Amino acid sequence: MTRPAMAGDLLLAGELVLVGEVERPSRLSVADLRDHWPERTAEVTFECATSGSRHHTFHGPLLREVIETAGPGFDPTRRKDRSRYLLEVTGEDGHATVLSWAEIDEDFGNAPVLLATALDGHELDGCGSQLVVPTDHCGARYISGITRIRLGTSG
C-alpha cells in the first residue's frame, strides 16, 4: 500500500519517494507500482556506450499515471501550465535524469515512459524500479534502482 512520504524517511530496499509539487507525496515499493496501476509492456532496443546494443522487455505502470495519482501541482486543464513542469528521477547510485511533463503528457509527446517492476521476466522488488524511456535510442536515461521522483516547475 502507498504511504505518505515524510521528511527524513529512510527507504527500504526497492522503495522510492514521490515528492515535489504534488498534493500527495508518497513512498512506493515495487509491489505498490505493480498492484495499484495497470501494467504495460515495453520491448526495447537501445545502444549502450559500454556494451553495445541491448534488447530487453520491461513491465510496469506508466510514469504519467503514477504522478497523476499523486495530484500534480498544475492545472490539468491548462496546457501551458502543464508544459512548465519537469520530473527529476534519481537512482540509488546517484545517477539522475530529467524529463519534461510534456514528453509524457497525452496532449504533447505521449511517450510511454515506464516505472518498470520487471525486467526480462525478473521482478525488481529487491533492487527497485527502473525508469524506461522506450523512445530513446541510447540507454542514458534508463535509471535503475529509483529512489526519488521529484515533480517541479522549470522556473
Rank of each mutant, 00 (worst) to 15 (best):
G94L: 08
G94T: 01
H95Y: 12
A96Q: 11
T97I: 02
V98W: 07
V98Q: 07
L99K: 01
L99V: 01
W101P: 02
W101D: 04
A102S: 11
A102R: 11
A102W: 06
A102F: 09
A102I: 02
E103T: 02
E103S: 00
E103P: 05
E103F: 06
I104Y: 04
I104Q: 00
I104P: 01
D105F: 00
D105Q: 07
D105T: 00
D105M: 03
D105A: 00
E106H: 15
D107W: 05
D107M: 14
D107G: 13
F108W: 11
G109Q: 00
G109Y: 01
G109F: 05
G109E: 00
G109V: 06
N110D: 13
N110A: 15
A111S: 12
A111F: 13
P112W: 04
P112R: 13
V113R: 03
V113G: 06
V113T: 06
V113M: 09
L114C: 02
L114P: 02
L114M: 10
L114E: 01
L115D: 03
T117R: 01
T117H: 02
T117I: 02
A118Q: 07
A118N: 08
A118G: 03
A118T: 05
L119I: 06
L119A: 11
L119Q: 15
L119E: 15
L119K: 14
D120F: 03
D120L: 08
G121Y: 00
G121M: 10
G121P: 03
H122W: 10
E123D: 14
L124S: 00
L124Y: 01
L124W: 05
D125Q: 09
D125W: 14
G126W: 13
G126K: 09
C127D: 14
S129W: 07
S129F: 11
S129I: 00
S129T: 12
Q130I: 11
Q130K: 09
Q130Y: 10
Q130V: 15
L131C: 04
L131H: 09
L131M: 06
L131S: 11
L131G: 07
L131F: 05
V132Y: 12
V132S: 08
V132I: 13
V132H: 02
V133Y: 09
P134Q: 03
P134D: 12
T135N: 08
T135V: 09
T135A: 13
T135S: 14
D136Q: 02
D136N: 09
H137R: 11
H137C: 13
H137Y: 12
C138M: 15
G139T: 04
G139I: 10
A140G: 06
A140V: 15
A140Y: 14
R141Q: 05
R141W: 07
Y142V: 06
Y142R: 06
Y142P: 04
I143G: 02
I143D: 13
I143C: 11
I143S: 15
S144M: 09
S144E: 15
S144W: 08
G145Y: 08
G145E: 10
G145H: 01
